[in-house]
Nucleic acid binder design. Sequence first.
DNA 1: CTTATAAATGTTATATTATTACATAATGTT
DNA 2: AACATTATGTAATAATATAACATTTATAAG
Lengths: 132, 132
Amino acid sequence: MEKQYNLSKNQKIILNLIVKSTEPLKAYSILYNVQKKGIKAPLQVYRALDKLVEIGKIHKIESRNAFIACQNSSCQISKATAFSICESCEKVSEISNSKLSKYLSNFTDEAGMKYNKYNLEFFGLCKKCKTS
Amino acid sequence: MEKQYNLSKNQKIILNLIVKSTEPLKAYSILYNVQKKGIKAPLQVYRALDKLVEIGKIHKIESRNAFIACQNSSCQISKATAFSICESCEKVSEISNSKLSKYLSNFTDEAGMKYNKYNLEFFGLCKKCKTS
DNA sequence: CTTATAAATGTTATATTATTACATAATGTT
DNA sequence: AACATTATGTAATAATATAACATTTATAAG
């Protein structure tokens, strides 16, 4: 059974914006976009972002300091994330590949250590940018 | 044949500091540590860091905004990086696992796309932190 | 339903990370 | 030597993120 979260007002506003966006959003760009809705300060944005990341509704693209909505139906996979990033147009997609996630979730290093979380970012050129 | 790079004065100073460090260093911490050697401004640090990353002598730990020396003898693998990060003590190690790097370098997504670069960060508890 | 607790908010100030712009100097190439 | 490339120096500022504190709202326990 999936745990239910009742998102707060700010969390809903910000999640909505991110879900509607076709590209990763940066914190201050989010701020500018929600100021008319009463969210005035960076901290209000960062707090909502932190929570949304924590519950897996969004992910942070670390190399870009930007946030995208989780593409997985269940949004439970905040501990095992993989993205493809186009180095030309900056398009970002979440990769859902069960083989990959199994491989990485089960990965054991030389010292026999397993990890409870990972984040993987692939870089290259997307179809569009490759042909143009 | 491996390309030779003649590092500049600032690049050498900063690489040296990072190589000697047992933990990832942040840009401004580097700055404070090299001010006595005449490097006075953030930009001087960032420029050297950019170059060192580019040629594979160091790597940026994206989730920490910090830099560590490359652990691979040849330092040629700046396009395929994997790290383990302890969420308690923040110890970071570079993972050199040929199976893993092969798997990821050959990874093809659902659309048949391959990537020329990736960065992977594993999170967990290191041995020390797990037992204490 | 009211008390206790946890979670979220609002606000100001500030810390941290990174880049722009412009002038100059050193190095490498032909 | 002339040219191009790379690196440096310096000042200013942009972009990203957190600390500290007061208050309010939601949730859970009795």
